[in-house]
Each structure stands twice: as C-alpha cells, then as structure tokens.
C-alpha cells in the first residue's frame, strides 16, 4: 500500500462524502443560504417537524415502502419457488429473462409505460398507483434475492420430508421457507431500499395530491434552495449511518463466529 493509492482513496472518500456533509453543515446556517455561514440555528429542524404537509409526505413514503415491499416479498417468494421447481431449462430461462426486464429497464421507461397502463385500466393516479408501481419493480428484485438461497439449501431435507410423509404444504411451510429465511429477509430489505430511494417511477405515476419524499424534494429543489431539505437530508444521513454501523458489526460478528465453529 503506497502513499499514492492511500491518498487516492482518501481523496475519493472526501469526494463521496463532501456533498452530504456540505448539506449537513448548512442545515445549521441561520443565514438561510448554502454559501455564507451566518451563525448556528436549529430552526430548519424545527420547521421540518412543524411542517404537517412534509410529515404526511414522510409517513406516505414509509407506508408505501412497507406495503409494497410486503406485497412484493410474498409474490416474489412464490415466484422464486415456482422458478426453482421448473425443470425445462428453456422455460426457466425465458421466465428469468422476463423477470429481469424491469431490473435493467431505465426508470423513465418503467414510469412512462406504467402511466400508460394505469390510464388504460382506469386506475386513478395516487397512493394506489404508486404502491402498484413499487410492487411492479420490487418483485423481480425479491425473486433474484431469494433464488440463490433456494439453490444453496440442502434439497435432501425436502426429499426427506416428502419420504416421511409430509404434505406439499408442510414441506413448504416447515422445511423450505424456514431454510431460506435469510434470503426472504434480504429480499424484503432490498425492496424496501429500492422503494425508499425511487424517484423517477413515482414521479410519473403519482398524480396530484399524493407525494413521496423524493418527489417532494424534487419539487422543493426546483423552487430553489430551502434549508429544510438540508435538515431532512441530515436526519436521513444519520439514520443511514447508524443502520450501516449496526449492519457492519452484526455481519462482522457472524463472519467471525462462522470461522471459529
């Protein structure tokens, strides 16, 4: 590890974190701009909390994420099981390709094509269309997260259960699903992340009156600089950081435990 690579790494980390810390720094600026720091204030945090419309948007975002990830996890779980049990290779590959279409499609395409779909089906744009859209792009992610754990689990357990007279339902609920729990959980978390992070798809299908955090931030940012956005982003950053630290120590512990046993 020479000094050149060390300084390159440091430089890149500064580049990646600078914008986020820059936002956080000015969220305390009494001057109201992102250029001159005129003194410390917590006003913007206060106004975020007191802003009822913004709090509703935040609740909407969380509700959409939880509902859509929940639905997608159930659909995706059975989808993954279905794909796992298909024998014909050609059928499986075709279905997998169709599964991956929405993963590789640009957000704009998903948003625009779903907008057409909803208008043809007469679904009014609002909370329902946003949840449906999030389910649409989360299902394939859940499937891809669950499939590897299905292939990794020991299939002899399934065969043993069948030999011992377990019904198809028992095999599913008592053997298969408990075996792939980590995969299911990872799929749910991934769906949650995508849902919370989505802007473009939601932007297309949200209509008037219903909004999620990203759409709201876009609207606010187009109007110019509001330090309320800085305050929100600082809170989000702190939450993300805490989750990341917990994740790191939990997974680190697991790895170490795995090594010793």
């Amino acid at each position: 590890m020479n000094t050149l690579s060390k300084s390159f790494l440091t430089l890149m980390i500064i580049f990646l974190y600078f914008p986020i810390l820059y936002l956080a720094f000015y969220s305390f600026n009494a001057g109201g701009t992102m250029s001159n720091f005129d003194g410390f204030t917590l006003d913007y945090y206060k106004s975020v909390i007191e802003n009822k419309a913004l709090m509703t948007v935040l609740m909407n975002t969380i509700a959409v994420a939880l509902i859509s990830s929940g639905i997608s996890t159930v659909i995706g779980l059975f989808g993954a099981l279905f794909l796992y049990f298909i024998r014909q290779r050609y059928v499986k590959n075709t279905l997998l390709t169709l599964n991956n279409v929405l993963i590789v499609s640009p957000d704009v395409i998903i948003g625009a094509s779903l907008l057409i779909l909803f208008s043809l089906f007469g679904i009014t744009l609002g909370s329902v269309s946003v949840i449906l859209a999030h389910v649409a792009f989360s299902v394939p992610i859940v499937v891809l997260m669950i499939l590897p754990s299905l292939y990794q689990q020991n299939n002899n357990l399934v065969l043993a259960a069948q030999d011992l007279g377990a019904s198809a339902w028992d095999v599913l609920t008592k053997v298969l699903i408990p075996n792939i729990k980590p995969g299911i959980f990872a799929g749910f978390l991934m769906a949650l992340t995508y849902s919370l992070d989505d802007f473009a798809v939601t932007f297309f299908v949200t209509g008037n009156g219903f909004s999620t955090l990203s759409v709201e931030i876009y609207a606010m940012a187009r109007r110019g600089i509001t330090l309320e956005i800085n305050a929100i982003s600082t809170v989000i950053f702190v939450v993300v950081l805490i989750i990341a630290i917990i994740y790191y120590f939990v997974s680190d512990k697991n790895i170490k435990r795995g090594k010793t046993t």
């Binding site: 936002l23 000015y26 992070d197 955090l213 990203s214 982003s233 989750i243």
Partner: peptide, 14 residues
C-alpha cells in the same frame, strides 16, 4: 443509501 435527489441538491449549493 442517501436519496439521489438529496445528493443532486447538494451540488446546487456546491
């Protein structure tokens, strides 16, 4: 994990 719009918004200031 920070929303893409927040990062974009930061660059408006920078």
């Amino acid at each position: 994990w920070i929303n893409i719009l927040l990062k974009t918004y930061a660059f408006i200031g920078i």
